[in-house]
Computed example of a mutant assay.
Amino acid sequence: MSDLPDRRGVLYPDRLPTFHREDAPWELRDRIRWFWIPRWRLAPGETSRQELLPFPASNLVVEPGGVSLSGPTTGISHRDLSGTGWAVGALLRPAGLASLTAEPRRLRDAETPVEAAGLHRAVTAAMGEADEAVGRSCSPDQRESVARDRALRFFSAWAAANLAAPDAGGVMANAMEDLIASDRSIVRVDQVAAALGVSTRAVQRLAHRYVGLPPLAMIRRYRLQEAAQRLREDPAVTIARIAAELGYSDHAHLSADFRTVLGLSPRSYRRAPGAAAKGSSDG
């Protein structure tokens, strides 16, 4: 796995195809958090199942078949890859999603096509061939980098023209997301409200209008992502300690969240192939 400084949400890193993630340009970071580009080339008959615990947000995705808007999920998501393919996606900020839908709740656990023929045409052309000016002497990795850079330039230009700058509500919704994503001590909606200086009801309205999930679901998703990451990357840490660090009253509540969302216990996840190093502690 490459180019993933923030590995939250990646349940089985060893199973990822070639994967690139790049921050959005500064002028777009109030609408797009980052771009992500997987590319896969699998042998005939081979299938790779990609399982993610997605961020509580929506993605605008360009693939060979078209452009789609994928809404926030209430559980894990998976996709079975085969053959050869690619995608270029943008993880949207709450303010960025506002330009694409007035009712993000309708996108929950769903996706919808987006009419963006120019975006699709430009990104598909970029991903389909490297810049001829680079020359035949370049390595496949260099040509891949050129193609990726071209695709992201086109995507960024489209986003600048089509995703409106945040209104006051969008700015506050982005601040809500930043707080929940970065502060592990946040485990309740009233804590978010106090930090933002608004009412609990105002936080609920922001999440409804700009995310499509209840704020408590956003909080739990980030904490559960962090728990999964700790289980993968720290073989010595106990489940009880992870639960305490992330604000769970005890490890039983963390285990219940794991089973509800991932369909397995923290101990089973930690032992799964591709999830974590050998010799982890199960305490």
Rank of each mutant, 00 (worst) to 15 (best):
Y210H: 14
A195R: 13
W158A: 08
G135P: 04
P56G: 06
A43G: 06
I186G: 09
G274R: 07
G247A: 06
I219Y: 11
L107R: 05
H120E: 11
L206G: 05
L16A: 08
L246D: 00
L264V: 06
P214A: 15
A277Y: 03
A87L: 08
R15C: 04
R241W: 07
S156W: 01
S182E: 12
L100Q: 07
S48W: 06
L81K: 10
P5C: 10
T124D: 13
P44A: 10
L92I: 01
A117P: 02
G128M: 02
C138E: 14
T260H: 04
D6L: 13
P235R: 13
E46G: 09
S68I: 06
L196Q: 01
S77R: 15
L246I: 06
P94D: 01
R209E: 15
D3V: 03
L163P: 00
F258G: 14
D190Q: 14
L60F: 04
G118V: 09
L224W: 02
N59Q: 08
A275K: 02
A272K: 04
A243D: 02
R221A: 13
V189F: 07
W158I: 07
L53G: 06
A147R: 15
L163F: 04
G170C: 09
D3N: 15
R106Y: 09
S255N: 08
